[in-house]
Design a protein around this nucleic acid. Structure first.
Lengths: 163, 163
DNA sequence: TAGAGAAATGAGAACCTTTTGCATACTGAA
DNA sequence: TTCAGTATGCAAAAGGTTCTCATTTCTCTA
């Protein structure tokens, strides 16, 4: 039961136990698909995944989970607050692990890279505006679309297009 | 050719001429479907339409335009800047006539009513944030979801659900 | 630790919105 | 008025997401 030396990668026993706890605390049964999907969502290289992205990521790991299950699991994760769903421009929803704090997004229209930000000034104004209009805020989405100045942008664009 | 007394409703000759000019100025051929759709978009009672909404509105007027055409026309209108497309939460895009100024939206999660606002403080912060992150702003979408305090909200909700 | 009952999964069909292909109809310039 | 080039209607297709249902997996209890 003690993780052996060199086993510290995804699928790691210790990591699994952590994830099991998270799932249980969220009120969800611990199942293989849920654990694997959570594992993908936690990988540090990326933060925003469409259902397809997750499917591909799993495939790359040699795992295979039905798309229907991925959608179901993501929806459940969203319901219990484990992930947030965003509808960026374009067709499909993207999901990201909820890490407590709210934040908004800047998306590059060329390469699709996503950056996050939080701005209290904006948050405050939103609350004021909603109140002025007689609304009780439930949620909000602020997405800035632009072009990033990253030299790798063009390269990423090419990659994204070839998928 | 002079509009007769009592003819000042949609379909009005004078109004048609105005719309014809708008279409021409936008670089589009004047066709019946385009004129009719523009006419629906201009009606004062509502501002935000999905393709279905437009289809139904046309149907109610005894007109009938293929959904495919409605989508094509809306896309063209968007391309020439006549309308703006928004992706509120939920499945379909909504379109509104572009009347010059940019504005953002507050949407009631119960009845779906949409209110618009413009706030220079938020606009300014967005520009600053984008600049800080090295982005050149192309566009942005800010949607506040909440519950309105309108007594008719419940009634509208019922109506919306029954559609 | 085996077994029952509840819940979750896989596979594919179904759904919904949006797009596309193609034959026909219309628009606008000559 | 004619004609080339577009636009439209219809039906089929596409893309993303959800649903159905038979089968499998979990969890809990005996």
């Amino acid at each position: 039961m003690i993780p052996e030396f060199g086993s510290s990668r995804h699928g790691d026993t210790a990591a699994k136990n952590v994830e099991d706890q998270e799932l249980k605390q969220a009120g969800l049964k611990v199942t293989l698909p849920r654990r694997k999907i959570l594992d993908i969502l936690k990988q540090p290289q990326a933060r925003h995944f469409s259902a397809e992205d997750i499917s591909h990521a799993l495939y790359d790991r040699g795992e295979n989970i039905a798309l229907a299950t991925i959608y179901r699991v993501l929806t459940q994760f969203e319901e219990v607050g484990l992930v947030q769903r965003h509808n960026f421009e374009g067709s499909s929803s993207v999901f990201e692990l909820a890490r407590g704090g709210h934040h908004d997004h800047v998306v590059c229209v060329d390469c699709g890279v996503v950056k996050e930000f939080y701005d209290e000034t904006i948050e405050k104004r939103q609350r004021e505006i909603a109140a002025d209009l007689g609304f009780e805020i439930e949620d909000h989405a602020l997405i800035i679309y632009g072009r990033c100045n990253d030299p790798e942008c063009r390269e990423r664009k090419r990659l994204a297009a070839s998928r």
